[in-house]
């Protein structure tokens, strides 16, 4: 009885491999590349010269007071492989790291540091911030760039995403791209 099942076992496996392992992903790829070429190829962000500067969906590191900083990353924004801290709530290392980050980020007179700025994300590549976490950085950036806070607030408002079934977020790379362009402008003036 066992040996009679060898042929169907092997041939069904080969058939399924071709169908679900080749025909299916190739079909999806063909339709996706035609219908949604930008998303299918990684939602790449290019500068004016056409150079790839990152992906809209992947956070990148922004050290320096003059930039919006994304959430801290357990893998230092590594994309291969992505990583999380996996620190337990009871792990003293978590409290220690949060305390250090909070001390560094706290701005006098602005109240408590938003939770998102002191916690690492699940992917280490979280491209977004909550509006509160972005606004918390406005005073610092305004001082560093010598520009009015109001224009930074307006920038955040302009880039806010508000899905019906999810939290409001703003894309950090988009904010910083806008800042970079603005910087070029202010130099030109």
């Amino acid at each position: 009885m066992m040996f009679k099942q060898i042929r169907p076992a092997l041939s069904v496996l080969v058939f399924m491999t071709l169908l679900t392992g080749a025909v299916y992903p190739l079909t999806v790829t063909a339709i996706a590349q035609l219908a949604f070429p930008v998303q299918a190829n990684g939602s790449l962000v290019r500068d004016a010269q056409g150079e790839v500067r990152g992906s809209q969906l992947l956070a990148q590191g922004f050290a320096g007071a003059q930039w919006f900083q994304p959430r801290p990353s357990a893998g230092d924004y590594a994309t291969v492989a992505s990583a999380a801290s996996n620190l337990a709530p009871s792990n003293p290392a978590l409290a220690k790291r949060v305390a250090e980050d909070a001390k560094r980020l706290q701005v006098a007179g602005q109240g408590a540091v938003p939770m998102q700025l002191v916690t690492t994300s699940g992917s280490g590549l979280d491209p977004h911030l909550s509006p509160a976490a972005a606004r918390y950085q406005v005073a610092r950036i305004a001082a560093a760039r010598n520009m009015p806070r109001a224009s930074l607030d307006r920038l955040i408002d302009a880039l806010l995403e508000t899905p019906l079934i999810g939290p409001q977020v703003v894309n950090v790379l988009a904010l910083n791209m806008a800042l970079a362009e603005n910087q070029d402008l202010s130099r030109a003036e």
Partner: peptide, 29 residues
């Protein structure tokens, strides 16, 4: 894919981030 999940057989894309660091953008089906 419409929402932003990649579907491509190309090699990983190499990007220079805004601050000039190297970033490898993983793709795949």
């Amino acid at each position: 894919v419409w929402q932003g999940v990649p579907q491509s057989f190309m090699a990983y894309v190499h990007a220079k981030t805004l601050l000039g660091a190297d970033q490898s953008i993983p793709l795949g089906p």
